[in-house]
Amino acid sequence: MVIPVHDVNPVRRTPWVTYALIAANVLVFLSTPGIAGSVAGESSLAQLCHLHAFLDHYAAVPRELIHDQLPRVVPTGEVAVGAQGPGCVIGAPEYDKSPVLSVLTAMFLHGSWLHLLGNMLFLLIFGNNIEDRMGHVRYLLFYVVCGYAASYGFAILNDDSAEPLIGASGAIAGVLGAYLVLYPKARVWVLVPFLIFLPLRLPAWLVLGFWFVLQAVYSSGEGVSDAGTVAYAAHIVGFLTGMGLAWPLKPGTPPPPEPRGLLFGRRARPRQTW
């Protein structure tokens, strides 16, 4: 898997919405109950119980989205000691949950630092150009629509699942799909793990096309051991939604600047003219 670090595609305006989305995701992550344990590398039972209760309240659950049926019992966040040892207390939910609204709140929830930082890196690199092309308000609406499409697309394919669906990956996948449509020839600096991290400058169509193929392969359960814990199908739906929504903007999109200087980690030689 290549790691993007920068794209050679300047913007005309400050991407305030992208910055705000990143800040909101970080703040929500830091304020999520039980997240302190993941930062320190360990979690107490009480922290885990609080985290499960929080996710049941604010995460999107496929079965709830499709059937609009809330569970009768959920984790309460409390810990009790029973005959088989301590465990999380479950009981009737003490809150009213809107499955439709939970899709929005779930877009700002992440399960670990790695999950958060990976998503925010992709959003920072590729989101600024999409915001620049669409404008602030339209870009924000685009982001939300892609996130909803990804969540409901995954829920349709997994309508009996009661596992919480969290993360901004679906919405960010839409940003990647839009970038592929609008700036396929833009150059992206990436780190390729090959004994060491090798810096290369590759076209966006290759970087993002490779990313999409990986999501499709992983979604089928091939080549990955945690296919059941990552919603790869949501990534695919979000990506395709982003491509479709960005397609009408392609004719009026100015091309990225022609690459000069460094190429594939080395300085390109000047061409001789005769």
Rank of each mutant, 00 (worst) to 15 (best):
V2I: 12
I3V: 11
H6W: 04
V8C: 00
V8N: 04
T14A: 11
P15M: 05
P15Y: 04
V17F: 03
V17G: 01
I22N: 10
I22G: 08
I22Y: 04
A23R: 15
N25K: 12
L27T: 08
L27E: 11
S31L: 15
T32R: 01
G34S: 10
I35P: 09
G37P: 15
S38W: 05
G41L: 09
S44R: 07
Q47H: 10
Q47R: 10
Q47K: 11
L48P: 05
H50F: 09
A53W: 03
F54K: 08
H57K: 15
E64I: 05
H67E: 11
D68E: 13
R72K: 13
T76K: 06
T76Y: 01
T76C: 02
T76I: 10
V79I: 02
V79D: 02
G82L: 12
G85V: 02
G85C: 04
C88T: 03
C88N: 07
C88S: 06
G91E: 07
K97M: 10
V100W: 12
S102R: 06
V103Y: 01
V103A: 00
M107F: 09
G111R: 14
W113S: 10
L114H: 12
G118A: 03
N119V: 08
F122V: 03
L124A: 15
D132A: 02
R133F: 11
M134E: 02
H136G: 01
H136I: 00
L140R: 03
F142V: 06
V144H: 06
V145N: 01
G147D: 00
Y152I: 10
G153V: 03
I156C: 04
D159I: 00
D159R: 05
S161R: 09
A162Y: 01
L165Y: 02
A168L: 09
G170R: 07
A171V: 08
G177N: 06
G177H: 07
A178C: 13
Y183M: 04
R187S: 13
V188C: 12
W189H: 11
V190N: 07
V192M: 13
P193Q: 14
L198I: 15
L202Y: 02
W211A: 01
V213M: 12
L214R: 14
Q215G: 06
A216P: 06
V217R: 14
Y218D: 06
G221I: 08
E222C: 14
D226R: 13
A227T: 08
G228R: 11
A233D: 03
A234W: 08
F239Y: 14
P248T: 13
P248W: 12
P251S: 07
P254H: 09
P256K: 03
P257D: 14
P259V: 04
P259I: 05
R260Q: 15
L263H: 13
F264T: 14
G265P: 00
R266T: 15
R269N: 14
P270D: 05
Q272N: 09
T273E: 15
